[in-house]
């Protein structure tokens, strides 16, 4: 008679363990989910006085005058968007070329391995080191290139002089290098997830390698490459240190890409440490705008990426 009792006892004992552990895991999950809400809530709360005072004008005003308590971030929004787009313009062809290079066998495997390693290293280098390198290497090069461009195309507003070393163009060059690994990695994934059979089909019909790449492989991988570009754009918009060190942090709007500019992230990095009162609130407001823009861009990127995975699942 005692045997069944002890057995049911041990069953009961078994049960109490997992319930507690499950609760712990559930709590951790809740904390994870709440973190994002908490971040947004705290930022909105801290920004509230500025939101209340400036409203939408904050987005469209170009004045950033802490002494006179007037704040507007229009130039920084423009700087964030433009510097990121210019960076994408430079990084996209390179990133796509590398992604194709890594998924094809143009050169023997060891060479591809080296390039792969180089790209991974580029992803690992800290932003502040890019900034330091940018100050000493990219600024002089960019300045002389910009001087030449101004002398030739100076009549075009976006290439107008005088050319500065600390400029939107300089920041964009370094940004382009920094987002290259993002574009490369995701594009390469979607290229290599194009079924091998499609590639063989194209070759068997008499395609040259590039006819197969351009006609069949790239179109199949296109959604993934688009996603890669969008996610890289999101990264570029949030990138802080290297940009803050190179862009000149000016709140003056200029048509020329060779002029100093400013970004939202750079603004935060430069001013948060010494800000007081309404300036802190305004910086929080700027942070809120930055988080909304980057969340928006990233959500689109993730959505496209998910759509891609559905698509390739269909082909297989």
């Amino acid at each position: 008679m005692s045997a069944p009792t002890s057995q049911s006892n041990s069953l009961a004992h078994y049960k109490s363990g997992p319930d507690f552990f499950r609760l712990l895991c559930w709590l951790a999950s809740a904390v994870t989910v709440l973190t994002l809400g908490w971040i947004i809530f705290k930022i909105v709360e801290s920004a509230w006085p500025a939101i209340h005072k400036f409203g939408w004008d904050f987005l469209t005003s170009s004045a950033w005058l802490p002494n006179r308590e007037r704040f507007g971030v229009f130039p920084f929004i423009v700087g964030t968007v433009v510097s990121s787009f210019v960076a994408i313009l430079m990084a996209f062809p390179l990133g796509l070329a590398i992604a194709i290079f890594l998924s094809e066998n143009f050169l023997p495997a060891p060479v591809r391995q080296v390039i792969r390693f180089v790209v991974e290293m580029l992803a690992a280098i800290p932003s502040v080191v890019y900034g330091l390198w940018g100050i000493f290497v990219v600024i002089p090069l960019s300045k002389s290139f910009a001087d030449w461009m101004v002398s030739v195309f100076g009549g075009v507003p976006i290439f107008a002089g005088p050319a500065y070393g600390n400029s939107l163009f300089t920041a964009s060059i370094v940004l382009a290098i920094m987002i290259l690994p993002t574009i490369t990695a995701i594009s390469r994934n979607s290229l290599s997830s194009v079924p091998k059979t499609l590639r063989e089909g194209a070759y068997a019909l008499g395609s040259t390698r590039w006819e197969a790449i351009l006609g069949v492989i790239l179109p199949s991988a296109a959604p993934g490459i688009v996603a890669a570009t969008i996610l890289a754009l999101g990264r570029a918009m949030g990138e802080t240190m290297a940009v803050a060190m190179l862009i000149g942090n000016s709140s003056r709007l200029s048509w020329s890409i060779f002029s100093p500019a400013g970004t939202l992230a750079g603004l935060l990095a430069n001013q948060f440490g010494e800000a007081q009162e309404l300036q802190v609130n305004s910086l929080m407001y700027a942070a809120l705008i930055l988080i909304i823009i980057t969340l928006f861009v990233n959500m689109i990127g993730e959505a496209v990426l998910r759509y891609t995975q559905h698509q390739t699942a269909g082909i297989r």
Partner: peptide, 30 residues
């Protein structure tokens, strides 16, 4: 909850690192 966790984790990978600083500034430094 699980889907929310995955979604939030994806979004957190995308938020700029400086926002983490802004958040810590608001909840610890202030």
């Amino acid at each position: 909850l699980s889907r929310a966790v995955r979604f939030v984790a994806k979004l957190l990978t995308g938020i700029p690192s400086i926002i983490c600083g802004v958040f810590a500034f608001a909840i610890v430094v202030l």
